[in-house]
Measured scan of single mutants.
Amino acid sequence: MQRVNMIMAESPGLITICLLGYLLSAECTVFLDHENANKILNRPKRYNSGKLEEFVQGNLERECMEEKCSFEEAREVFENTERTTEFWKQYVDGDQCESNPCLNGGSCKDDINSYECWCPFGFEGKNCELDVTCNIKNGRCEQFCKNSADNKVVCSCTEGYRLAENQKSCEPAVPFPCGRVSVSQTSKLTRAETVFPDVDYVNSTEAETILDNITQSTQSFNDFTRVVGGEDAKPGQFPWQVVLNGKVDAFCGGSIVNEKWIVTAAHCVETGVKITVVAGEHNIEETEHTEQKRNVIRIIPHHNYNAAINKYNHDIALLELDEPLVLNSYVTPICIADKEYTNIFLKFGSGYVSGWGRVFHKGRSALVLQYLRVPLVDRATCLRSTKFTIYNNMFCAGFHEGGRDSCQGDSGGPHVTEVEGTSFLTGIISWGEECAMKGKYGIYTKVSRYVNWIKEKTKLT
């Protein structure tokens, strides 16, 4: 034993070699072989497995989906700052455009905790909710729209109204504003409101030439003092309507412009014939205590009207009353817009006519005020429907199939267009061939041609 100890002390290297040989010859039971080890760690190889990531292109799944990435790591994937920024906006807080917040056709661009709407022409605001041009839906104005110097929408209202708090709607500024039905039992019968379409306001006024200088022999019209197929109006439903009495009662109609003036057809009036105007009328054979009678003290036909040349060209006249009318729910003026808007309103496509005229061709006159909704007829169809001249200051309205029309005794009465609950004068009943005849239409004086003249002559002093 002493000898062994001496050998170990003198030859430590020998001992180490012996131990190493023993270990190498022993069977290893701690580690699995290569094949079995792979069965336990069965993990798919990654895209760049075996390579240094710093030297390969980034992978979106590896960089940002398996674990949260930084902007720089995302930049490695896209290799483009702009594309990385677009991805980053949604990656950080989701897609803010998912709810489609942009209105009126706006395009949404996502941002971090926010979004941006790219608005089409005519709109602005956070969600493109603000109209900035009158060309689109009248700028959301209830009545009139004008573009300011910086191309912003400025709404306005006709006389007797003021802008509401929203700067879009119009509200009454006087007790009985024009064009409004205020009798409670008839307010439910107000005709369907007309909503502004998209309009090209630059070209809204037709490029028409008034044929002022045409000389033409007097034409022989049949029954051209021209509501057939209409309905009984309720008291106060058309408070701007008046009836004219002269040699015979209810020979023509008219509309209240203001307390002192009536507008009617020029062919209705004769110099030297006494005319009485009755406002607030409903049943011409009954006294309903809503009527107001006034005498006409002055007749002003349009300066281009000449019955000797043509009885229905420039067929418009103004009547001055001896005493002002007292405005109330049964006696209310009709609204008159400017030339541009009167023309736009007419193009809405349908209007209402009213009167006490004959209820059928050569038949009896109506006792109760009649009204009828009539569609506008395109000019080409209008011209083809008659052998008589249709001037540019006239328009056609009615039904091709016949059966409904204005008729004798309705002449001078109103053709009105309702705009968001307020009625505007767009025409004056003038003439036609018979009444409600198939293929024939009622012919009306186009008020847009005469609004400046009306307003100039009827100013209240």
Rank of each mutant, 00 (worst) to 15 (best):
G427A: 02
T81G: 08
E66R: 07
V228Y: 10
R83C: 15
G50T: 15
E434N: 13
N343E: 15
P414T: 15
P12V: 07
D322E: 11
F121N: 07
A192V: 09
V269A: 11
N113C: 07
V374C: 04
F348P: 02
I428G: 01
T386K: 08
K146M: 11
T287M: 07
N138Q: 10
C435F: 03
N222K: 07
S430R: 03
A250W: 06
Y312I: 09
L369W: 10
H361N: 12
A397H: 02
K89P: 15
I344M: 12
F224I: 12
V30P: 12
T386A: 11
R75F: 06
E142L: 03
N328H: 02
D410N: 03
G409S: 13
T194D: 08
S255W: 00
G403M: 15
G398F: 04
T271V: 06
V269Q: 02
F71G: 15
I316Y: 01
L425I: 05
L383D: 14
C134S: 02
Y22R: 02
P120E: 04
D110V: 05
W431Q: 14
G58K: 15
V181F: 05
V228D: 08
P375H: 13
L244P: 00
P333V: 00
A265G: 03
E193C: 13
I275L: 11
K274F: 07
I443F: 09
L41H: 13
E66F: 04
V77I: 06
E159D: 10
A207R: 04
E434R: 04
A233Y: 08
L14I: 13
Y341A: 12
I297N: 05
G106I: 02
K247F: 05
S99T: 14
V269L: 08
L189P: 06
H302P: 02
T215S: 08
Q219V: 04
L103Q: 08
A380S: 04
E340F: 08
T209A: 05
L19H: 00
H34W: 07
N127K: 11
E193F: 11
N48E: 15
V447L: 13
C396H: 02
E259G: 03
P101V: 15
E323C: 04
M394P: 02
M65Y: 12
R364H: 11
F348E: 14
K51C: 08
L14C: 05
N343G: 14
N245E: 08
F71Y: 05
S49M: 08
F424S: 00
H361C: 08
K311F: 05
H400K: 05
I262A: 02
D232N: 12
W118C: 13
L327F: 15
K459F: 09
K152P: 05
A192H: 07
R180F: 03
T133H: 13
K446E: 15
E76V: 15
N42H: 08
S114K: 07
C178T: 00
G246W: 07
S184P: 08
E53A: 09
K146W: 08
V368C: 12
F196K: 09
F251Q: 07
W261V: 01
T194S: 09
E35I: 04
N59V: 03
E259F: 02
S99K: 14
F395K: 01
N59K: 08
A308C: 10
I299T: 13
F87I: 15
G246K: 05
A233M: 08
E288V: 08
V368A: 13
K339S: 15
Q408N: 05
N203I: 07
D198A: 10
G253K: 10
I15T: 03
T225L: 05
K455W: 05
S365K: 03
A436I: 14
I214P: 07
K45G: 10
F55H: 13
G439A: 08
I15W: 05
V30S: 15
E66G: 12
N38D: 13
G442E: 06
I262M: 01
R379E: 15
H400D: 11
V56A: 14
P120R: 08
E116Y: 05
S70Y: 09
K168C: 06
I299R: 05
V30E: 08
E35Q: 09
S11F: 12
W453G: 01
A9I: 05
S385D: 13
